[in-house]
Nucleic acid binder design. Structure first.
Lengths: 337, 337
DNA sequence: CTGAAAGCGCTAACAA
DNA sequence: TTGTTAGCGCTTTCAG
């Protein structure tokens, strides 16, 4: 069964193909009667426009590509909701590709999107080289999410990671914590800023920053926590660079027969579903993911209108969500209950 | 900056466009010297073939569409890995769309994919009407994942949900549990079979099945558990239809000051990251997600070769992963520690 | 092994 | 408001 084409519809409706085209694109300059006839014919034939042909002729796809750093990280799922909301309101569809945490896979995904001629590109936490991103931005609007890129053509939307770290340290200091350890996020998106914010905030409170190099993974958090447990003078609070890592730390603490927040306070970042489960109830920093997604989509839409405008670098204000994994600092050494 | 076309490459390489086309499609019938010249010209111009044009002429995209029931469910992330592995080995790219748990969004995603002329469609846990799926299957190869559809054109890959439930009940019965409650998954993918498998297995053990209607969500699991806690004679074990729901139940139990597995054993389904976190260590049923993804992708590839072959309905054997949320049944009523 | 020519299904001036 | 006419960038016969 061959798919009907515009010509088939035109023939059936007794009009020309261009008229059908106009109706399909919802042009106002069509008489009501013609429009009705075309729509009826289209329905009867179960006609659907061929996007490839449309795109070849019009040079646009009404499609934006979205490349994920990692499909397993729930942070991006929520960001996608925001993107979707704005995109669908503007008649754009979204195509997702998974970078699987590997730069070369991301690169292939990016090439693939460009081959498909998406109208714009959204990069969610990708670790692609700046050069690659900039080269892409020379071809089409690009917005990087959760990643700073300083270039006039690349828009960015990030949360204020330094501020987030400050909120965390303030909260912990207020609870009486003085020895706070940060498990860093390695080369992950935003981890450098979170780390710097942590150091600054600690100094501001007159405290000595303590840092373990980590990753945005459960394993890294677990390993770091195990190291801390063997420390001569373990900290009273742990601030992990994201929820996954924080949960890893909580797992290690639990396995050691200790508990949160009695022995250690633990704070994560991202406020993903992981943190909000009643079984976990983790204190975490909310980045305003929905807002981030919306802002990113709006950025590329506006650049579609104004290709050479100056870069937009939006900094979203994060918020600390206090739950049950933070409490007063224990006094003295660790004693199993 | 205009994108170079095949003609530009041909001109630069001093050959005809058709020859460039052959080289781009890696045809063996090209002399080494021509091939080299074309490849060099393409590289120098930074040429990338226009997929829309290619598709318009060849009628294929080398692209498969994947529609997710929900991007927030980690189950599908893993399935995607399997799909990706097989797809990329065969030169196919994957395009993902999120159904956001709503049939109409799924429908829009499906239409969108068909408009884009993807070569085949993979449906991961979608709740689309059978009619819609079948109509799609008449246009292109379709494989439904985690969902049974009985139609000669629709391939399916599911895990054996009945068997999964049997494994769970066997395990719990062996631990001495006799009052086991199943929190069902409502209209979610596979929940009917899990429920039936549960009932059968209970009867096989001479036990009375107990069921609460639920959903594939944390909230549903929590609500069900709260109901059970108020029960005259609460069960000693809870088998939730998926990990999310099981974690919800664990949260409610924890909030009530009770613990797992001392007061209640809890089992989930899917063995997602949620279950394997050290902080959770939940006993759960592994569906062999990677294998499921691979099988689904292989199914559509084979149907691309043999469009009218009989439907393939693969049933993947699940495995019970025993962790720390199941233990011997408590004897007697619940007493807080 | 290489080139010429005819579309794929649609959009976009331009004319009428 | 509607129809005519060129393409969009590529693949695919078919000759040579």
């Amino acid at each position: 069964m061959e798919r009907p084409t515009m010509d088939d519809v035109a023939q059936r409706a007794g009009v020309s193909r261009s008229l059908v085209s106009l109706v399909m694109r919802e042009s106002p300059r069509v008489s009501d009667s013609s429009r009705a006839a075309v729509q009826r014919a289209a329905r009867e034939l179960n006609y659907r426009p061929n996007l490839a042909a449309r795109q070849l002729a019009s040079r646009r796809t009404l499609t934006v590509g979205l490349i994920f750093y990692d499909l397993h990280n729930l942070f991006f799922s929520e960001v996608t909701e925001g993107i979707h909301a704005v995109a669908s309101a503007s008649g754009y569809r979204i195509l997702i590709n998974n970078g699987r945490q590997q730069a070369d896979v991301e690169r292939a995904a990016l090439d693939s999107m460009i081959d498909l001629q998406v109208d714009a590109l959204l990069l969610a936490g990708t670790i692609l080289d700046d050069d690659v991103v900039i080269a892409a931005a020379e071809q089409l609007p690009v917005c990087a999410i959760s990643r700073a890129i300083d270039h006039p053509l690349v828009d960015t939307v990030c949360n204020d990671n330094r501020l987030g770290s400050n909120l965390v340290v303030d909260h912990l200091a207020e609870l009486g914590h003085r020895r706070i350890c940060h498990i860093s996020g390695g080369d992950g998106a935003g981890s450098a800023e979170r780390r710097e914010g942590f150091v600054d905030a600690m100094h501001r409170h007159g405290l000595e920053p303590m840092i373990i190099d980590g990753h945005f993974t459960e394993q890294a958090g677990a390993q770091a926590a195990r190291d801390l447990l063997n420390h001569d003078d373990p900290p009273t609070a742990i601030y992990a660079a994201n929820d996954l890592s924080a949960l890893g730390a909580m797992g290690a603490i639990k396995q050691a027969g200790l508990s949160v927040p009695e022995h250690f306070s633990v704070v994560g970042y991202d406020n993903t579903a992981l943190a909000s489960f009643d079984y976990v109830r983790m204190t975490s920093v909310e980045q305003q993911r929905l807002h981030i997604g919306e802002a990113a989509m709006r950025a590329v839409l506006s650049r579609l209108d104004t290709p050479r405008r100056a870069a937009l670098n939006e900094m979203v204000v994060p918020e600390l969500i206090v739950r049950s994994t933070t409490g007063p600092a224990r006094s003295g050494p660790i004693t199993a209950r």
